[in-house]
Every structure is written in C-alpha cells, then in structure tokens.
Design a protein around this nucleic acid. Structure first.
Lengths: 112, 112
DNA sequence: TGAAGTTTCTACACGCCGTAGAAGTGTGGC
DNA sequence: GCCACACTTCTACGGCGTGTAGAAACTTCA
C-alpha cells in the first residue's frame, strides 16, 4: 500500500532527514532537480493522501513533515513483505543466513 | 524491481506451491477465477520477462516453474527494502524490537 | 488434412506517477 | 482598503504497469 515512486521517495528522504517541517519551496530547492514548485506540491499532496506526510495548514506557507520516521516506515515495509508469505519464520531464518557476520553479531547483541 | 501485481502474485503462489512445473491451463484451473487462458499466458509471459519464471518450451503445452523459491524471493524483497535506507542496522534493530517473543526466540536459536 | 488445443500478437482500460500550467486565494506593504 | 506577490488548488497530460482477452498463427494427433 505504501509503495512510492522515485520522486516521492526523494521527497520523503528530505523530510526524514530534516529536523524541521519543510515548505514546498524548501523541498523544491533541496531537491536540486529544477522542478516546478507545483510539481513538488502535487507530490506532497499525494504523500499526504497516502498518510505518509502531515501538513501544517496553520502556517503560511504550509509546512510538511513525515508522519513516521524512516525506520518506522521501513519496518512497516518489512512487515508488509513478510505478510505475503505463509510462514514468516522460515523466511527470517533464510534472511539471517544471508546477512554479513558483523550484522549477525549486531543482531545477537540486539536480541540480548 | 520485482514488484508484482495481484494476479501475478497469485500465479507465483501457485508455482511456488507446486512440486511440478505447471501448464497455463493448469494454472488457470487452479486459480479458480474464471479467467481466459490467454490472460494467464500473458501473465506468465510477463513473469518470465521479469525473470521470475522459467518456461520449458520443449514440452507442449509449455510448462512454467518459479526461478527462485518463495523464500529466496522474499529475502530478496527484504534486502530491497533494506537497501532504501542509509543504515540497515538501525532498521533491523527496530524490526527486532517489534517481533513477537516467540519469533525473537526463534531468531536467537537461528543465530546460534 | 482437418479439428482441437496451444501460443503469440495486439489491444484496451484503468490507475499510478512525474510533470506542470492556469486559475484561485491569502497576505504584507503602502 | 487595495494591490502585487507568494502560495495553493485544480486540472490535465503522457507514460508505464497490470488485468483482461480476442484474433490470428501455429502444433499435433487422429
């Protein structure tokens, strides 16, 4: 459900990296891709509709912020992928088997 | 890159569950959705083009099989998701924190 | 060789995404 | 209060992916 296009992803990335909510203009400049501001506004509106972005309508210009952190969102994506299979554990087992040694060590540490 | 539509996913699911390669007709019947066989053939051709399905052209009717197992494919998807983020570990940490106790136990067991 | 089964080719509709102009609306300065 | 300017909304278009399938071509077996 929360699959993003290329530009949408770029915009989310900026919002995730920003400590503050951003205006459409700021996003536009940060993108550094010579896009019309209306393009950015359209994308932001679509992201809002998808529930990924919250818009502060009080201030003018409106300011936009990510609803969930990058990590939260990514974990959601992982769970979405895992939701497509009948048995999560068997996939996780194989995934664990595919990660690097250092990552495996990190996972052991996290799991306590 | 390997994102699938609804019908494509259903077809893959059948191929994954089948011990044998299947013909378009067999897939069609197993789908139980009253689709034209040409529809199924189109989908199978697209899946082949995406590299998800191997077609045995020798036999007639052609037979189709999944290239990767469901688990392999899903792990690929997981890695794709993790590839969208600057730091995999931080996401994995959060993911681990979100799984059930029994799943965490299973992960510990797998990690040895 | 013809009928039945199979595959290929072509096509259409629909929804998503990148893209942005035109038109509408709010705001600060005069 | 009014105007220019900044900002937002509305509308739209083209391309691509996907579900869908008919028409035509091809294969095989009787």
């Amino acid at each position: 459900m929360a699959s993003l296009g290329e530009l949408e992803r770029s915009v989310m990335s900026l919002l995730w990296d920003s400590a503050q909510p951003l205006s459409a203009n700021e996003v536009c400049e940060l993108l550094d891709e010579d896009l019309a501001v209306t393009t950015v506004l359209t994308v932001l509106a679509r992201l809002e509709k998808k529930g990924m972005v919250r818009r502060e309508r009080a201030s003018r210009p409106h300011r936009y912020a990510a609803v969930a952190s990058r990590e939260e969102h990514t974990v959601e994506m992982l769970n979405e992928v895992l939701g497509t299979v009948p048995d999560r554990e068997v996939v996780l087992a194989r995934f664990i088997g595919s990660v690097s040694d250092s990552e495996a060590a990190a996972l052991r540490r996290i799991l306590g």
